[in-house]
């Protein structure tokens, strides 16, 4: 049954909404009127009802925002039974329903930002949109306004596997109230936890976890394969052939004889960003503190360990914290680093 607030809002804006639908139907010929009606009834109506409970005056504004975005998302095939972005639907039903006060505060900003974040988390391989939703459901309760919610969202997106946003996320930590930032980093707040110190430590080591950084004892560290990045395209990965890796201007680049990607990686995940068809020039100075021999013996940061997976490496490159190795029989890039045991 359609809620009274929703019905009234539809009635108030009838002409405008009909015009918007008419425009959208021409832009998206596959847009189905019945499916859209169903979408409004099942998805938007409960949200409008929730908004009506917390900010009745904002119902019309929220409806217009959700209506516009629904047309766009349905028109582009991002909503619906065969969508490739199920997280979007989950985000709308869970996050919007859970935080109607934020939706009412800034309908356009909140709805667009959350939807776009879920879209970006969905299109990146190896990132975890469901984790983002669950974490935001947990932490969002403590956010008084949309701005705080979106700042927290940046940190959680990094923790959801978007390693390329690491720097920005750490900067966002310092913009928030410390309790909220600690919650976003999944650090249990204890007396004496110094947020700035934690952020400083995290900046220095991509393989250090926030909770270890926050604890007094960092534990023993030893060499370990921390991640294997990439896979054969036939199995859902990106690479057509076993890749090779170089370091250029401090960044890792991976090449599979057809394409080149910039690779970012840390404790929470790794991402690959296509930059073209050729490798950039590698850094001239070889890292003296990193080496690997044909037996898989890695010497790095004054430690050494043999990894049988890394025998007869085809290429390797290292920065201050990470050694990246490729082997002829694998489509993955192995990352070796010192991590807390």
């Amino acid at each position: 049954m359609t809620s009274e607030a929703f019905a009234q809002a539809l009635k108030n804006n009838r002409d405008k909404l009909n015009t918007k639908f008419a425009y959208a139907r021409h832009a998206y010929p596959s847009l189905d009127g019945e499916a859209f009606k169903e979408h409004l009834r099942l998805l938007v109506a409960p949200l409008i009802e929730a908004v009506n409970q917390v900010a009745a005056a904002k119902v019309d504004e929220v409806l217009m925002a959700l209506y516009d975005f629904s047309l766009d998302l349905l028109g582009k095939g991002m909503f619906g039974a065969e969508t490739r972005y199920p997280a979007l639907l989950k985000g709308w039903t869970q996050l919007f329903a859970q935080f109607p006060q934020l939706l009412a505060q800034e309908p356009l900003t909140f709805a667009a930002a959350v939807s776009n974040a879920l879209y970006n988390l969905s299109i990146n391989q190896n990132t975890r949109p469901d984790f983002w939703i669950n974490e935001m459901l947990r932490i969002g309760q403590a956010c008084n306004d949309v701005e705080a919610f979106l700042e927290v969202g940046k940190i959680v997106a990094w923790r959801s596997g978007m390693a390329h946003y690491r720097e920005g996320a750490l900067a966002a930590c310092l913009q928030l109230e410390p309790p909220l930032a600690l919650a976003a980093l999944c650090i249990k707040e204890e007396a004496g936890t110094n947020l700035e110190r934690v952020v400083d430590q995290l900046r220095g080591d991509p393989w250090l976890s926030p909770w270890v950084a926050a604890s007094a004892a960092n534990g023993n560290r030893r060499l370990k394969i921390t991640a294997v990045v990439g896979a054969f395209r036939g199995f859902g990965g990106l690479f057509m052939s076993p890749p090779e890796v170089v370091l250029s201007n401090g960044d890792f680049y991976v090449f599979d004889n057809e394409n080149c990607w910039l690779m970012t990686a840390d404790l929470f995940g790794a991402t690959l960003h296509r930059i073209g068809a050729t490798l950039p020039n590698p850094d001239q100075a070889a890292r003296s503190n990193a080496s690997i021999d044909k037996t898989g013996l890695v010497k790095f940061a004054e430690q050494q360990m043999t990894f049988s997976e890394l025998q007869t490496p085809s290429s390797f490159a290292a920065n201050d914290t990470t050694l990246a190795v490729t082997v002829p029989i694998s489509f993955g890039v192995y990352l070796v680093a010192l991590t807390t045991h």
């Binding site: 900003t109 667009a112 776009n116 940046k154 946003y165 720097e167 996320a169």
Partner: peptide, 16 residues
């Protein structure tokens, strides 16, 4: 990379 790009995508709020 700019973390603000997290919120840029198919929907445009205009505010950004």
């Amino acid at each position: 990379f700019d973390v603000a790009d997290l919120y840029a995508g198919p929907l445009n709020s205009g505010q950004a």
